[in-house]
Amino acid sequence: MEAVNVKNLVKIYGKDKTAVDDISFSVNQGEIFGLIGPDGAGKTSIFRVLTTLLLPDGGSATVDGFDVVKDYKQIRSRVGYMPGKFSLYQDLSVEENLNFFATIFNTTIAENYHLIKDIYVQLEPFKNRRAGQLSGGMKQKLALCCALIHKPVVLFLDEPTTGVDPVSRKEFWEILQQLKEQNITIVVSTPYMDEANRCDRIAMIQSGQLLSVDTPANIIKSYPEQLYAIKANNMHALLKILHEYNQVKSSYAFGEFAHISFKEPKFNPDQAVTYLETKGLQDIELIKTEVTIEDCFIKLL
């Protein structure tokens, strides 16, 4: 059985603001499934429907086999949800928050301590501190503990790493990997394209619509053109010239380099170097490069 099944899901706000537009996907048990897309893509609306906090306007969805409309009570006891906004009790202590969540799910901290142990040891020195007084990274860890304490079948994490620095982001993904090994299904959303590679499968979403669902490796493999990385002495000038160069299919900045693809598959890239030199650029370096998820996303937009 699939852990999550979403079929032709639609969510409309007000008269005509379509947040989720006929989206279908399924999540296998024990999988880390990523919803990848920018703000406003519809990720949070999907999470809210799946956690039974919002009724869909069309289509259907099940979580752990239960229907999100009919069986909302069963779902609520089976899922853990960490919303994008910190929503624990700011004036309860770390320990009180955790105890509270354990109690409302009819369990105790001791019963499922093994699930949160690795994360909670980092919080333990501050267990008497009020949640509102914690640092951002610590709040995030506490929220994860509270979402896990009743041993959910499926864990929903809405943008857990937004605004978090690259080092803390890496640590957080290592935690998720450990949870996966304990056989918890994880559905996680992120606006950071590089995090897609940490997922078993991803759904790329933009403006309420599904662009693609597959493993990161397959999505990368399906990229249709040879991609090149290019740099020169002046990046801004390089981008402007590439933009107007009629042999170029697409070009955009990508860190130290610009990524480009050519219209003609047989085009000799040395020609491009010569062309750019006549335009006054120097120190040009052009190499074949590997496609990333971000390239695929840009391609699909």
Partner: peptide
Amino acid sequence: TGGVDPVT
């Protein structure tokens, strides 16, 4: 640019 899509 936090949370903004890669093209924008």
